[in-house]
Design a protein around this nucleic acid. Sequence first.
RNA 1: GGGCGGGUAGCUCAGGUGGCUAGAGCGACAGCCUUACAAGCUGUAGGUCACAGGUUCAAGUCCUGUCCCGCCUACCA
Length: 887
Amino acid sequence: MANLPKTYAPQEIEGKWYKFWQKNDYFHAAATSEKPPYAIVIPPPNITGSLHIGHALDNTLQDCLIRWRRMQGYNTLWMPGTDHAGIMTELIMERNLADEGISRTALGREKFVERMWQWKAETSDYIISQLQQLGCSCDWERERFTYDEGFVTAVNTAFLHLYNQGLIYRDTYMGNWCPHCNTVLSNLEVEPIEIDGNFYHIRYPVKDSEIVLEIATTRPETMLGDTAVAVHPDDERYQHLIGQTAILPLCDREIPIIADAYVDTEFGTGALKVTPAHDTNDYEIGSRHNLEQLTIFTRDGCINENAPKKYVGLSRWECRERVVEDLENLGYLVKIVPHRHAVGHHDRCGTIVEPTVSPQWFMNVRPLAQRAIEATQKGEIKFIPERETARFYHWMENIEPWPISRQRWWGHRLPIWYCSECEGITAAIARPQQCECGATSFHQDEDVLDTWFSSGLWPFATMGWPEKTQELKTFYPTSVLVTGWDILFFWVARMIMLGLGCMDEVPFRTVYLHGLVADEKGQKMSKSKGNTIDPLETIDTYGTDAFRFALANASTPNPYVPLLESQIESGRRFANKIWNAARFVLMNLEKYPVPAGSDAVDTSNETLEITWIRSRLSHTIKTTTEALENFRFYEAAQTLYAFLWHEFCDWYLEFTKQRVSQDEPAALWAAADTLEQTMRLLHPFMPFLTEEIWQQLSPNGTDTTEDETSVTVAPWPEAKGENPIAETTMATLMEVIESIRSIRGELNVPIGASVEVHIQSQNSEVREQLETYLRQYLPAFTRVTSITIAESLQKPPASAEAVIGDLAIYIPLADVIDLDAEHARLSKRHQQATKDVATAQKTLDNPNFVERAPEHVVAQKRELLERLLIEQEKLARSLAMLSESGG
RNA sequence: GGGCGGGUAGCUCAGGUGGCUAGAGCGACAGCCUUACAAGCUGUAGGUCACAGGUUCAAGUCCUGUCCCGCCUACCA
């Protein structure tokens, strides 16, 4: 064994072990195996840059599951890959190009896409290497990309499959248009943000009359596209105007005054200007009344020729200013009232969306949504936490047609061909030979598909669909999907629908939706808020394992999980603690090597502390396993932390010191065994550190290259059962030790000073236990000159006292005792005891409690009261004595 | 406007189907370099479990209402 440094240095071991794992192919899943399958597909990170804190959490949790199941003996597949992330990646590329002074349009589609592929090559490698730094045990041989060759086939096949069922169709409809990205968007991509706007009240004169109709709008510029004014059919104020004609100011166009029940008489003036081409509701009204759709904006959000000349070419905002100015000058403007309202923004680029009518490809998701609901109701899919199920249903039940075409360049082209002669549509992967009309010339649809269409195929396209591969047979449906709740609709819901649509089977059995990483104020971490923690920086500073442990430890079931720097720090301290515990064990093993063939542990002559630590280990195995089974990562992490630090290190290793100093190595060998098993338990959370220690501990497992093995493929520990008697005995001993320490601490007994300990107990069993073990253990925890244990003994003069139930501990402190301090100490405990007695007494005094509560609860209460009464009485007596001698 | 989640120690959070004397980490205070670890050890302090009712032998936990905070959703121009 090499000399281990005093402080754990993660940088020195992490890279080494990752290479080792890869070399041994531990992460590769066999397409066929006798082992039961367990599969997770990674939520493919976008190729837009580097991993953020959300990825770190998401992938840490996935790796925990995968490593745990692998150790449990499953044939585990963690399918990795990246996403081409259509619009987002294009935006970044456009920004890069802008830095070079090139515009996308100047470059042209072909060149642009070429550059995108170059970019992809660089960034996806970078992202993969970051996942590896995080320790992710993905099956890298199977890495995929949502725009690779296989995906093109899968996307085309899926499209045609759904098209042929009539689920995909072309329609001209009012949609969300992003004037910056020049594409239509789905509702999900539009983020409503509250902004401070205005309500503009404007007069619309009524033709052939002196009457003016006052309307109110937040978007005065759209009046240039007005084709009606609507009032409520029952609105008495406007009855006489229905059917009349208004004169649209600035345009001098005549528009009808119509009645439509959509109009809210209470809101604004009760008169609504109608712009069917640029407002979703107005569009509906327009279709009901057959109004003209007058488009007044260009694709990039400027005024077009349908508006009066003076406004043509202005941006939406310039136009608003000019229109308001003109209205005011001409006397049409009544007033401007500040008005706060929600306005849709493109979630990717932040541009205010312009509702626009355009021809698009849609997917009718209703039938698949219905099947998804049914599948969930039948239990084919389970959501964790459960509350997410309700969100899922709600969205699925209210789903609307999904616009799937995007007017962009980077992404899957639609397998749709238009005849150059008759414009007839042919759906086919390859260019068709001949149109029904006889023509032979075609052009392919220029649009690309929404990125989520292709990532919706991820769980089966990555496994080779549409081929009927062995992988699909083995691993589909996958076991679990792990992702943040924020993409439940974007991605999870669509995977389920497309899985049902293409595979006729849900893509996964369980969906675990974790929280979003937040800062200490509960604010979601985001670049724009500047409150992010950079995963790579964190790994550099604290080490991967510390970071991973902190993430798992922070991962409560809450929708937002605050991650504090101090928690990562705590992870690092934990790693260092483990490191040093291992050092201690290993250093001592040099002196006392584990005898060969000692695998069969001899428990016949086992000492209490060994029985105890094995019992606690068994409990820890059970709790950790259950926590993982229920996706309670924080609970697993906390269980392991508490066991390793506060039981194994704080107590067991101290016992071991004592034993070893007396030349009794059995405790040490049990320590090595416990540590080895604990390293296995902890491995899913802290893969690098546990591998390093496990290798050092394993009997043959020094750095030999032959017969390589790894904790990665070691079996998951088995809970062998707990020993309540040993645990109870140990608890008493610990209490005694803690009491003595407490006296020493509170009464400022010098560290170097040895003390006499007198213990009185009427319980012979307890006395026996103390006789047997306390003499052995105590020296490891505090300096003692002598220990006296008796059924009854006089409290020595000038001594400090502690009471534990029937047990009294006296420590003579003639030279150092501060009687006032001791009095204060005892009276505080007496007060507490009195309070506890009162509480317990009150419960037991209630006859209904004794009658109706379960027997064991009553018995427990009685025991407690008894013990508390004894303590209270002892303390009272000692206090009286103390006052006497002191006063 | 609806729906969901939350309010427990100075801070961040645990406390499945009500029942041990309400816990942890961090922070605070006091004392220690005790030969695995100062990224450590030992001890101490700190909580009307948001508020008000109710159900129950028993409520941090279940019910109702109120007040805050956050989020998701909705066509009020």
